[in-house]
Amino acid sequence: MKIAVCIKRVPDMDVRFKIAPIGNAVDEAGLKFDINDFDSWAVEAALQIKDKDSATEVVIVSLGSDSVQETIRKALAMGADRGVELKVARIPFDGLAIAHALAAELKGGGFDLILFGKQSADSSNGAVGAMVGELLGLPVVTAISKLELAGATGSAKREIEGGQEFVEFPLPAVLTIDQGLNTARYPALKGIMAAKKKPLDVRPAQLGEQSVSVTKMELPPERPAGRIIGEGASAVPELVGLLQTEAKVL
């Protein structure tokens, strides 16, 4: 079995963001970056298949500047076999441009499974995985939270509004991973050491044409701080008044 996992390096969400002076991007100064959570579950899914069948090869593909090497190494430290950096100066916003580059790399790679996280924490488009499936002419199942393989077929579970959906698909296929499938393993030092010696190829990304761009970015409006009106029953009339006039919920 041969599995490709496409991962993205994204800013850590615990830090508050600032908008860069150009106005259509995030100011990256002081931000910490790490593998996108959904993508780490995709890596874990591939590694769990490898745990059962050691003949499995897991290849990590990431598009970005050279800093993505750190993120690829992390996936290698978790246990993946080799990595590919598709080098660009800046990750474009247009998912189709990215999908073209990834599809060019994956095509002819002989992969039985191509895994993505269902969306990235920073741009939240959720588009690239499905686009790559389309470009490669492979079946696509998005946002799966359970995965089983039996020979040349796979089955998956998807959480949908108010229920669950069970799907079956032939291999090779493209899958995007939702929360709940697994928790990503913590790379042991042994794995980190081993990862330093694993192959990581760097190739220029063959981006597709970019037709969509971000024109402006804004922070969500600041929420006014909570107010304490008073304590006990005496505060009730004022509270009701405010709920009617200010909050207009009554």
Partner: peptide, 19 residues
Amino acid sequence: MESRFPPEIQPAFESLEKN
């Protein structure tokens, strides 16, 4: 060597590394 520990400490490890 084995990455074996109570699962609840993984977020602490990850946060120590990131934050």
